[in-house]
Write a protein that binds this DNA or RNA. Structure first.
Length: 586
DNA sequence: TCGGCGTGCGCC
DNA sequence: AGGGCGCACGCCGA
């Protein structure tokens, strides 16, 4: 059952949208003040208890909360210890459905209003924005969305997408509230081992300072600041090196004694600036009583046009492998780390109903499957070729492999080629569940139009063709990246749903998701439940595949590891003591 | 002093 | 002639 929710200064207005929809039927005069009789007002102090009661009722599943914006409402519910099971996030769903008006929804004032500043702020007041969409507006928006879904070409898929997106909003809020367990001491050890002891503010760590001196020597550039790209490029050229940039891939192809120290400098400087001590102080709350600290980022569901999540703060989606050793479970807890293998080509196989490609990935590594079926000679070539098909690359080796992929997997390759054609022609494309790519921007018409005029010259035509190819690569990748993101959302939502059914461990609590990275999830769980959690994560991957592609024979194999530290889950690293279960630290 | 931009690099 | 991001830095002009 759906419950429509509208926040006000006094509390939550809550009611049944079906009853409201009848009252709000088109051509009906606006109801007089007080016409929100079908909405009950639950005052703020009682909200958490009331919501928790609703969650427990409704025959076990709880209601679906239809509300303006999960990101705005969730913090105060979470702060009060309430975690709802399901919701419909009108803001996120509005964006997917591309409803024209009012756009955006909720309109900016509701999103950007400064928090109220009562004279005696309480936790709830603190988080209450000044204005909200009125109850009637929330009901009306919900009705518009229900109508839009019903009128769409694929209502079933769209409903799944909206449910998954909304579940993502709940998960994002919960992961922010729970934080990622982070061991500050371990992080400091990693930095010290790589850079030397933490220097005084503003100084270079020992190791970096030594490398900088070495670089200046080798380039005969006494005053050089290697952090200045322009100065560095000039110094490299003065030393006779033929370089167009200071990028590491270009440096790596040059034979000169400075290349080694310079590449090392760049790697360490990057570590220091992106995840050094300053980052640690800014982003990781200290732990207490042996418990790990917490890294909290703001997850932004739907923050990428393809439907992938973005994050804001701390560079959470770019935590380098070297630093992942600092992600450590609390005492008595472990991390279940699961990453899905080659989601994008699998999603493509499902979209295109390409049995051959699905079959290549049926038993595990899809790239190995390409080799086993004789399509290409090596795993590396299989990967390069497949990524080129998905990204639109044609350079180098990929150009030679693509024709073979086209012969072996005509359905899949035709699908992405077609998506590229549509994009290059200025059209829009859709993911499997129905997220639409953005239309071309304002520059598009101008450039394409210019090339079509009678006095257009070669430059105009080249520019137009180049722009069309760029957009073709974007739409080609959009359908695949976006559908993979949909699978991942369903995977995570199903995982969350099942984790909620586990009984908490006395004195510790329940397993919860703590990290999500496109095709990888991390669950923080009491050690006693880790086997059940691993099984849930596995089963949820299978369920997600069925939700999207029904009975089509497509597998989504996972690599699952139960570890104390995130880094120990790395397939390519042997790990400290092998299997975590054997580690005395547990 | 601050904002915008280019460069470079981390992740998928 | 490779898709999507976020972030830090140096640099430059307002």
């Amino acid at each position: 059952m759906d419950l429509v929710v509208a926040p006000t200064r006094e509390g939550l207005l809550v009611g049944d949208p079906a009853a409201a929809a009848v009252a709000d039927a088109p051509n009906q005069e606006p109801r007089p003040a007080g016409g929100e009789a079908d909405a009950e007002c639950v005052p703020w102090p009682a909200v958490a208890d009331w919501v928790a009661d609703q969650e427990r009722s409704a025959s076990g599943t709880g209601p679906r909360w239809v509300w303006p914006d999960t990101a705005a409402i969730s913090p105060r519910l979470l702060a009060a210890g309430v975690r709802v099971g399901r919701c419909h996030d009108l803001r996120l769903c509005h964006a997917i459905l591309q409803l024209a008006a009012p756009d955006p929804w909720p309109a900016p004032p509701w999103l950007t209003a400064a928090p109220a500043q009562p004279s005696t702020p309480s936790l709830l007041d603190d988080l209450t924005p000044v204005t909200h969409p009125a109850w009637e507006e929330v009901v009306a928006e919900h009705a518009r969305q229900v109508t839009a879904v019903a009128a769409s070409a694929e209502p079933g898929r769209l409903r799944l997408l909206l449910a998954a997106e909304s579940a993502g909003a709940l998960i994002a809020a919960e992961m922010h509230a729970d934080g990622l367990p982070w061991d500050r001491e371990r992080h400091d050890e990693i930095l010290t081992a790589a850079l030397g002891p933490r220097p005084q503010h503003g100084l270079r760590p020992q190791r970096l300072e030594r490398l900088a001196a070495q670089i200046r020597d080798l380039l005969h550039a006494p005053g050089l600041n290697p952090d200045s790209q322009a100065a560095l490029l000039k110094a490299l050229r003065n030393a006779g090196l033929d370089l167009q940039s200071t990028a590491k891939w270009e440096l790596a192809g040059i034979a000169h004694p400075v290349v080694g120290p310079l590449l090392e400098y760049k790697a360490l400087a990057r570590l220091l600036s992106a995840n050094g001590w300053a980052w640690l102080d800014t982003w990781v709350e200290p732990g207490a009583h042996g418990r790990s600290g917490r890294f909290r980022t703001d997850y932004v569901p739907g923050g990428v046009v393809t439907g992938r999540w973005a994050t804001s703060g701390g560079g959470a989606l770019q935590i380098p492998r070297a630093i992942r050793a600092a992600v450590v479970a609390d005492p008595g807890w472990v991390l279940v780390v699961a990453d899905a293998a080659q989601v994008e080509p699998r999603a493509l196989a499902g979209m295109a109903s390409d049995l051959a490609l699905a079959g290549a990935g049926q038993d595990g590594d899809l790239y190995a499957g390409l080799v086993a079926t004789g399509v290409v000679e090596t795993r590396e070539r299989a990967k390069v070729g497949m990524l080129s098909a998905l990204y639109g690359g044609t350079a180098g080796e990929a150009g030679a492999i693509l024709p073979r992929l086209r012969r072996a997997y005509p359905r899949a390759t035709t699908l992405v080629d077609r998506a590229a054609e549509i994009g290059a022609g200025g059209g829009t494309v859709r993911t499997w569940l129905g997220r639409t790519s953005p239309p071309p921007g304002p520059a598009w018409q101008q450039v394409q139009g210019r090339a079509g005029e009678v006095d257009a010259d070669g430059t105009d035509e080249r520019r137009a063709r180049s722009q069309a190819r760029d957009r073709g690569r974007f739409t080609r990748n959009f359908v695949v990246q976006g559908t993979a993101a949909e699978w991942a959302l369903c995977w995570m939502a199903e995982t969350r749903r099942r984790l909620r059914d586990l009984d908490p461990v006395p004195g510790l609590g329940r397993p919860h998701l703590v990290f999500f990275l496109h095709d990888e999830i991390v669950v923080h769980t009491p050690q006693a439940l880790s086997d059940q959690v691993a099984q849930i994560v596995q089963e949820s991957a299978t369920v997600a595949g069925r939700l999207l592609f029904g009975g089509f024979p497509l597998s989504f194999p996972l690599h699952v590891a139960t570890v104390r530290a995130y880094a120990d889950a790395d397939k390519d690293s042997p790990g400290p003591a092998g299997d975590a279960a054997a580690s005395p630290a547990l």
